[in-house]
Design a protein around this nucleic acid. Structure first.
Lengths: 252, 252
DNA sequence: GTCAGTTTGTTCTGTCGTTCACAAACCTCC
DNA sequence: GGAGGTTTGTGAACGACAGAACAAACTGAC
């Protein structure tokens, strides 16, 4: 028998892992996880949580791949970058694998997050329950507009942007969310970086420049729509108009 | 002289393009635009708009690449899929290129969009000005909750989800936005598809399955944060802890 | 203990995407 | 009209990723 059985797993994500000899124990330090794989780990994590909620103890790569909406070969390869957490002939233990992925992503600790720009989107983000449930806690809301100060949003007071440095230093924040208008985004990003923030999630529809060592991820609503529009346009054309003749006499 | 000069372009995005012989006129029908390129076209479009607002008539690939935050070689290759819209030794005419990209994406027409699920996020989306300014118009807001019906959000009444078919058929809607809780998303997606929607932008944190011919793009806030957390965790480890020894005695 | 059936982990191969480097094309100046 | 400088468009090398296919490893039956 190995170090784990479905029966002795803690009920809710808290899995005790002891380094018993004979069980492959995670990834060797040399391997780097490809970026494409990193981007899918949260999807697997969610799929595993869903399976666990349904009472599933064990699943095959085929099952999990279906739940995550990917190819099973891809799933197995992705998981292999983390280590050998499955059992051939059996599959994966849901709770165990879930914990391993969570640990790999870094969700075994709590990440304090601040949100800058409490407009429509900032409100929605502050109220978004998916943050806290996944190990992120919004510790402060900042806005440059004095009219918004001290207003309570999702139980937190909106604070002036000048409090940034104190908050970041005091709470050990390393992740910031920008939900300001586009014109303010670069300035906010600069100040976040200056205070020690090293990861930024940018909702403002503009490119922001940051120094090396700072990660930026962009979420852009209208870009996603435009990509859809491109494909939609292609569908609508009945294959005749697309074959030449369209480029002439084009006017706005 | 070619068919265009910076001077005789219409002032604001409306560019008259006539098929004068001697000027390369767009892409041949055979070529397919790579998906990665399609995803960047909206970024170039935004950068061009920004340059135009600053009064710039002409820009080099280097300029535009800097504004869009990409490599200039990549930019040139991307644009080459659309056609030869630049002039060697000179660069690109901002207004002309902007129009060509907009046409390629399909933004010369207006795309009606419906939003399903008018919670916190739905509110923010309905009020998001970036939609209308880029050729998308929100024509209806739907919600299953009767308590929300007829409430005015961004000037539009929230309507019952059962009105879906009538609205889609009546307004010729082909793009739908899902901003419901995760549990409702698949059901909403099925109904959207049944009514003839062929492009879906999904904000619900779950995988949705659709038949072939329907495009889905996913925007997932917590996944983005988790990806940031992964890299953040890697930064924090001072390269010693990462080299083994961490896998034992890990508890939540 | 052996055999059949199942499922993982990994290797291999083709495709897609990025980057470099350079010829072709253009402008300006003389 | 020609020379020199500039910039695009693209061929080619390179790297990352996806998917198929298979050997290795496990379970359970007998």
């Amino acid at each position: 028998m190995t170090a784990r059985t479905p029966a002795d797993d803690a009920p809710d994500g808290v899995v005790h892992v002891d380094g018993v000899a004979g069980r492959p124990q995670g990834r060797e330090s040399g391997r780097e996880i490809p970026e494409a794989t990193v981007a899918r780990l949260p999807i697997y994590l969610r799929a595993l949580t869903s399976l666990a909620d349904q009472g599933t103890d064990t699943c095959s790569s085929e099952d999990l791949a279906a739940a995550a909406g990917v190819n099973s070969a891809k799933l197995r390869k992705d998981l292999s970058y983390l280590g050998s957490y499955g059992t051939r002939g059996v599959g994966y233990d849901v709770a165990y694998l879930r914990y391993q992925i969570a640990r790999e992503i870094g969700l075994t600790q709590d990440w304090p997050v601040i949100i800058v720009g409490i407009g429509n989107l900032g409100h929605a983000l502050a109220n978004f329950s998916g943050f806290r449930s996944r190990g992120f806690s919004v510790v402060a809301l900042l806005d440059a507009d004095p009219q918004r100060h001290d207003e309570l949003v999702a139980g937190l007071p909106v604070r002036p942007f000048d409090d940034l440095e104190r908050i970041v230093a005091g709470q050990g924040v390393s992740i910031g969310v920008i939900a300001t208008p586009a014109v303010a985004a670069q300035d906010v990003a600069d100040k976040l970086v200056a205070c020690g923030i090293t990861s930024i999630l940018n909702f403002a529809p503009t490119v922001i420049n940051v120094p090396d060592g700072v990660d930026v991820r962009k979420v852009d609503l209208s870009i996603e729509l435009q990509i859809l529009a491109y494909h939609e346009q292609r569908k609508a054309i009945p294959a005749t108009a697309a074959d030449g003749g369209l480029d002439e006499e084009v006017t706005a």
